[in-house]
Amino acid sequence: MLTEIIVVVRPETAMLQVTDQSSLTVDLAMDSLQLAEFFERVRESIGEFDVGIWMAGAIRPRGDTVGGLVQHLLTVIPEAPDVPLPAVAVSGSMR
């Protein structure tokens, strides 16, 4: 689900293999407007969450990984049958 949203926001990433170690700002080259759109689309898909909590940890180098976001979402969004859990590939490389 997250990889699909990434491609919608940043179509240039369609040919890349997004992994849990992919940085939203470095590897996927999202700027602030793209990040805002990305998080809005994530909220529309899985529900409201405080992105500020995740951003506090994401400001450190390589702290803004897709895997880090997945882990954060799993802790703040209650699992429910009608809420799809975030998915991301965990193999391969962006390089």
Rank of each mutant, 00 (worst) to 15 (best):
A29V: 15
A29I: 14
A29N: 09
M30S: 02
D31C: 05
D31E: 07
D31L: 08
D31K: 03
S32N: 04
S32Y: 00
L33P: 01
L33T: 05
Q34D: 03
Q34L: 10
Q34W: 06
Q34E: 11
L35V: 12
L35N: 14
A36N: 09
A36M: 15
A36F: 15
A36R: 15
F38H: 06
F38V: 02
F39V: 05
F39E: 01
F39Q: 05
F39P: 01
F39A: 02
E40M: 13
R41W: 09
R41Y: 10
R41L: 15
R41D: 00
V42P: 00
V42G: 01
R43G: 00
R43M: 09
R43I: 11
E44R: 07
E44K: 10
E44L: 07
S45Q: 10
S45C: 00
S45T: 03
I46A: 06
I46K: 01
I46D: 04
I46R: 05
I46G: 02
I46N: 00
G47W: 09
G47S: 01
E48D: 11
E48Y: 06
F49S: 00
F49G: 01
F49Y: 11
D50K: 12
D50P: 02
D50H: 05
D50R: 12
D50N: 12
D50Q: 09
D50V: 01
V51F: 04
G52Y: 03
I53D: 10
I53L: 10
W54Y: 14
W54S: 00
W54N: 06
M55E: 11
A56V: 07
I59C: 09
I59R: 12
I59S: 11
R60F: 12
P61G: 10
P61W: 12
R62G: 09
R62V: 11
G63T: 07
G63H: 04
D64M: 09
T65E: 04
T65H: 03
T65L: 03
T65R: 05
V66S: 02
V66R: 04
V66L: 05
V66F: 05
G68L: 08
L69P: 02
L69M: 08
L69Q: 08
L69W: 09
L69N: 08
V70C: 15
V70W: 13
Q71A: 14
Q71I: 09
Q71D: 15
Q71H: 13
Q71T: 14
Q71R: 13
H72F: 15
L73Q: 07
L73T: 08
L74V: 02
L74S: 06
L74T: 09
L74E: 15
T75S: 15
T75N: 13
T75Q: 11
T75R: 13
V76Y: 04
V76M: 05
V76H: 03
V76L: 09
V76A: 06
V76G: 01
I77V: 12
I77S: 04
I77M: 08
P78G: 06
P78Y: 09
P78C: 10
P78I: 08
E79R: 14
A80F: 14
A80Q: 13
A80E: 15
